[in-house]
Computed example of a mutant assay.
Amino acid sequence: MPTQTSTQRSPAVPASAEPRRPAGPRAVAEPGSSPRWVRWLPVLLLFTDLVIQTVFPQATAAGFLLTALPVLVAFGFGPWLTAASGAGALVLQVLVASHAGHLYEHHHVWVYLSTGLAAMAGVMLALQRVRQARHLVLASTVSEALRRTVLHPVPEQVGELRTAGRYQAAQAEVAIGGDLYELCDTPFGTRVLLGDVRGSGLEAVRAVADLLGAFRATAHEVRELGELAELLDRQVRRGALESGDEELFVTAVLLEHRPGTDRLDVVNRGHLDPVLLGGGAVRTVHCPQDLPLGLGHLRGQPAPAPTSIPFTAGQTLLLHTDGVTEARDRAGRFYPLTARLATRFHGRPSVVPEQLVSFVTEDLARHAGPARDDLALLALTPAPVRGKAAHPA
């Protein structure tokens, strides 16, 4: 997840600001771990075998069931315990056959052999499962490192803005998708970028990394927000030409908050309008929209100037991608973001950013279940920093 990149970054990043895996249906077990019920199957088999042997001691050769024991153990445990279960199954079969007086009968000997082969197969299965689990852990670690390299954690405060964010990739095992955001405390104020790359897969991740890298570098060098948007537009266009994807573009919204002011400057490049909460009301902030980043060369007129909107204490601005508003429930109904926010926060004079993004994340999961698209959320509210020298205007 994004964070500011200047030396004035907040030194502590609270755990609550870290990206979180959604609870409920999307919760995923640790790589390589087996469901608890799988680990009880060997016990159930042993119990069943002993009960049958006790109730019908002469009618059935219940020890035959133990042939499957090491294979069942292999699904839930490691190779050593699997081998031990195979040896234990052989011992029990010998004891059961000896008790019934059939120790050396021809078909019992073949059962002993089958159990030994099953134990060998179980040990190989357990070894393969453990090996795959280690590979999954390594892949998960690399994926998490990539996400943290591309999308930095959101700090509790950037400049004079208190912030909170969530990022959720549609493919939980990938950890990063085509949505992006970043916050930078620059000499020109706090600057924010939130966007959504067209497409998915590795090309989308590459576009995300390129765009965030360009934003982090140029946000500190370019005075005007509109000029910054044009530089990012050209960066996306260059990436499209290099990758051979002429249709690559990024919908994005850029914000700027100058220290000591009570306004935000907004540039909307084909993205969803932000939502403003404050004074007990919820409203959509409509701004003139320009073409998405990467398509500015198709514009037939000058780019619209940034829109200035009031942004005072007690107000909270929510930025989001279409993974929120286009999420559907089982009946095909889209998630009604503004209506849900109005219901939840009606009458509240102010909303804490972390509470806002937590509510949307959890309420969205209840509405639509497992996510089918990437989503990104950023919530911002004014939070003046006492004793801090103002940046030059």
Rank of each mutant, 00 (worst) to 15 (best):
S200G: 06
R216P: 10
V208L: 09
R191H: 01
L225M: 03
R216D: 11
D210T: 15
L225Y: 00
V208Q: 06
F215W: 06
T218V: 13
A209R: 11
G195Q: 04
A214K: 01
R198K: 15
H220F: 04
S200T: 14
L225N: 00
G213R: 06
G226Q: 10
V208P: 00
V222A: 11
G226D: 11
L194P: 00
H220D: 06
L202H: 00
A214F: 03
A217F: 05
V197T: 12
E203R: 07
A204H: 01
R223T: 11
G201Y: 03
L225W: 01
G201E: 09
L212I: 08
G226Y: 04
V208R: 05
A207I: 13
G213N: 10
V192M: 09
L211N: 13
V222P: 12
A207F: 06
G213T: 14
G213C: 09
R223H: 02
A219V: 06
R216E: 12
L211D: 13
T190P: 05
A207S: 15
R191D: 05
L194C: 11
A219P: 08
A214Y: 13
G189V: 03
V197Y: 08
S200Q: 13
G201L: 05
E224T: 02
V197E: 14
L211E: 14
A209K: 04
R206K: 06
R223S: 07
A207P: 00
G226H: 07
V222F: 02
T218S: 14
R216H: 03
E203N: 08
V208I: 08
E221P: 03
A209C: 10
A214W: 03
V205G: 12
V205E: 13
T190E: 04
R223M: 07
R223L: 12
D210S: 15
A209T: 12
D210P: 03
L211H: 10
V197F: 11
F215T: 07
R206F: 05
V192Y: 12
T190M: 02
H220L: 00
G199M: 14
A217W: 02
R216I: 06
A217Y: 02
D210E: 15
L212E: 08
V208G: 06
T218A: 12
V192R: 14
G201S: 08
E203M: 08
A204F: 02
G213W: 07
A204K: 01
G226T: 05
D196R: 08
V208C: 11
E203Q: 12
R216N: 09
G201F: 05
V222L: 04
L225Q: 00
D196N: 10
A209M: 09
L194R: 09
A217N: 01
